[in-house]
């Protein structure tokens, strides 16, 4: 359990003060993948660096597993940091060391013996899928491979918490996905708590179960990812949701669609975290004498199931029964746009 109370950070330079993080409260449960999203300058990067005191907090308290990080002496903090892994946007590997020596570095710091180090490094290389690259130097690796080394290095001392500072922002979309899959794997396998900073809603959608939205140093909205997706309250949050779901411009086309498809019923289906009703449309078609025509929509997968909207045309004999089935037997929310009858 990570609890943050009244955390703030003020940068002072040339008599001008900049508040990067302001009076921030958060609780993060063990085993969570907690996403913090915000635009550049929202203070999210400063926030994650405050957690292991790479930046010294100006005020507030951080407790990780009942240890008060903020009250620690430099010496205690060094020991505590060995339990907090961190990965970075630009990987921050030592170019003068090979892959295996990079991964061994935190073990050297923790004073692990050479034989134990070699054993652990091999385990980690297998875990992140870099077998055969042990002797390569970072300059010989691709971005995704470098981040895998970063992850292996961060996991070397079996930390309980992993901090990810824009860990996928320098990677292409495909590599981003493979790194995210690896993070979910690690989270499930070791029950590791992951705190992830990003400006991409796609990342939040794909792997997080909780999210906090930051703006001007404050958390303006937080909750379960599905709730935030469904009911974004703040303007920034809506913007971020649009990144993934499109911007609702399609609503304007509905009149056009209604004109073009005048037969049968036009309904809008909202899939909200569906895991059991994903085959709804084929089920309806099998069960009742109806034809279902998908006209428009977008469904996306989150950690809590499918989420999105479809506009469909239902035509045929059993329209009423089919509509009743959706209303009563499925958890998909339905809205009738046009009822031609």
């Amino acid at each position: 359990m990570i609890s943050i109370e009244g955390l703030s950070k003020v940068f002072t330079s040339n008599k001008s003060k900049t508040t990067a993080v302001e009076n921030l409260d958060l609780n993060i449960n063990d085993g969570d993948i907690f996403g913090v999203i915000g635009y550049s300058g929202a203070g999210k990067s400063t926030f994650v660096r405050l957690l292991n005191r790479l930046e010294e907090p100006s005020g507030g308290r951080i407790t990780i597993n009942n240890e008060d990080i903020t009250a620690m002496t430099a010496r205690q903090l060094r020991i505590a940091r060995q339990d907090i892994g961190m990965i970075f946007q630009h990987f921050n590997l030592l170019w003068s060391r090979t892959v295996e020596d990079n991964i061994a570095f935190p073990l050297e710091i923790a004073g692990v013996t050479k034989t134990d180090r070699q054993k652990r490094v091999q385990e980690l290389i297998d875990l992140v899928g870099l077998s055969g690259k042990e002797k390569a130097y970072p300059s010989q690796l691709s971005g995704g491979q470098k981040q895998r080394v970063g992850i292996a290095r961060a996991l070397a001392n079996n930390p309980k918490v992993l901090l990810c500072d824009e860990a996928t922002s320098a990677l292409d979309p495909e590599t981003t996905n493979s790194i995210l899959d690896l993070l979910v794997d690690i989270n499930k396998q070791f029950g590791l708590t992951i705190i992830l900073i990003t400006h991409e809603m796609h990342v939040i959608r794909k792997i997080c179960n909780h999210v906090a939205v930051m703006e001007s140093g404050k958390v303006v909205e937080q909750g379960e990812v599905m709730d935030v997706f469904l009911h974004p309250r703040q303007h920034v949050t809506k913007k971020f949701v649009e990144q993934v779901m499109g911007n609702g411009e399609e609503d304007e086309d509905i009149a056009g669609i209604a004109e073009a498809y005048s037969e049968g019923n036009l309904v809008r289906l909202h899939f909200v975290g569906e895991t059991t009703n994903q085959a709804l449309i084929s089920k309806l078609a099998k069960k009742y004498d109806v034809d279902i025509n998908i006209l428009q929509g977008k469904i996306t997968q989150t950690q809590a199931g499918a989420y999105g909207t479809l506009i469909v045309q239902i035509a045929g004999k059993d329209i009423e029964e089919a509509v009743r089935y959706i209303k009563e037997k499925s958890s998909v929310e339905m809205e009738v746009i046009q009822d031609v009858k």
Binding site: L54, R78, R81, F105, P106, I109
Partner: peptide
């Protein structure tokens, strides 16, 4: 910074 974060 990475080395600091590892507790060096």
């Amino acid at each position: 910074e990475a080395a600091k974060a590892m507790g060096a």
